[in-house]
Simulated scan of single mutants.
Amino acid sequence: MSASGGVGVIGVIAALMAALPHSGAFNIHPAPYRVLTHSGSSSFGHQVLRLQDDRLLVGAPVGPGGRLFSCHVEHGDCREVELDANVTRTNLGMALTHWGRDVIACGPGWSRPCDRNVQTSGICVLIGQELRPIRSLQPGYQGCQRGLVDLVFLFDGSSSMSPAQFGAIRDFMVDVMEKLENSSIRFAAVQFSSDIQPCFSLADYAAWPRPRDLLKGLMQLGGLTDTFTAIKYVVHQTFSEAAGSRPGARRVLIIVTDGDATDSDTGGVRDAEERDVIRYVIGIGHNFNSPDTARLLEPIRLGRRIRAGAGRIRAPPGAVPRAPGQDLRHRRHE
């Protein structure tokens, strides 16, 4: 650039500066910042809400529990807001907001037992100007919906069952009932072979829910395997209000057997369908590998209400299965 050109640019800049209004320069001196901390909570500061009088409401929703702190900005001190002990276990302080002159603090972790499960929902606390809880709020609260279930074990006690298999069935029933003893499930047990032997009813279990006592002295019946006759008995007798069945309860029938039935269906399966009895079959022994056995069991376990197929419990070593398709009406039982 030429010298004359440079002088011209400088002149233009000088003219513009002269035309601008005069202003004074100043320096910015910010006030010292304040760090607010609390050693007792790693989540301190997850949510912050400004209050009156230079105060802050600080949420610490995670470990231990849910806590709120009132912090004075000028002094730099924080004190914990006193809350109900049950509320502090709900991750309170996950959300903070104003409600007029008051404050609402919320947390999502309100857990409570419900029929052997844990039900979780949110809970909020309305806090007044003096930072004292006014009342709890329960948005979207849903009470414990207990699913009533009447469950009947119909188990095989025919002569084709080995003593080890029969003992395994008893242990299985006891284990299931003990694990679900604090639930809304009510149990009953019926042994079948050529005969039918009710072990205990739904009402018996409701009066004394001690499965080991209820099955004490259980002996194997022996005989044939009249499965369909037993199903009809359970549908009409065991699942009756007189025997302790509850109106509105879901009815579940668990059939434990080692294979082929020795009788024919005379309407028991149809009656189970009409009464919405959900049926499961648990097979014991090697006979369940037979296509013929699977075909014969289809009417028992299938239907519009069925939600599961047949299961299998392995037979103990040395158990002798029945021959597939064998007509047990003509078999000698010892």
Rank of each mutant, 00 (worst) to 15 (best):
R212Y: 06
V35C: 05
L328P: 01
P30H: 02
R210V: 09
W110A: 11
I300F: 05
G217Y: 10
V118G: 00
R34C: 03
C71Q: 09
D226V: 00
G303S: 07
G128C: 05
Q197E: 14
V12W: 10
P163Q: 13
R301K: 09
I123M: 09
S245Y: 02
A18K: 13
G143A: 08
V103M: 02
R329C: 04
A19S: 13
D171C: 00
S111P: 00
A310N: 06
D260Q: 15
G109I: 02
S290H: 03
A15I: 13
D226N: 15
H333M: 13
L221K: 12
Q52G: 15
S158R: 08
R132I: 03
A3K: 11
S193Q: 03
N287V: 09
M219Y: 12
S184V: 00
A272K: 03
I127H: 02
Q191A: 12
R307M: 10
P163M: 10
A3W: 06
I134H: 04
S184L: 00
R67L: 10
L214G: 06
Q47T: 15
A168N: 07
H72V: 11
L137A: 04
S111K: 11
Q52A: 15
N27Q: 12
L296I: 02
D204Q: 07
G65H: 10
S39F: 07
R79H: 15
G267N: 05
I123Q: 09
N91E: 14
G11L: 14
R322H: 11
R186F: 00
G65Q: 09
K232T: 05
S2A: 08
V174W: 07
D102W: 07
R275L: 06
V234G: 08
R332D: 09
G268W: 01
L215A: 10
Q47S: 15
V7G: 09
L68K: 06
Q138H: 12
S245W: 03
H236D: 15
E130S: 07
G59F: 08
M177W: 05
D102R: 14
V62F: 15
C114H: 01
E181F: 02
V81Y: 03
R322P: 00
A323K: 12
F192H: 04
I278Q: 11
F192W: 02
V320H: 13
L328A: 12
G318F: 06
D271A: 15
S162Y: 04
V7S: 12
R55K: 15
V174P: 05
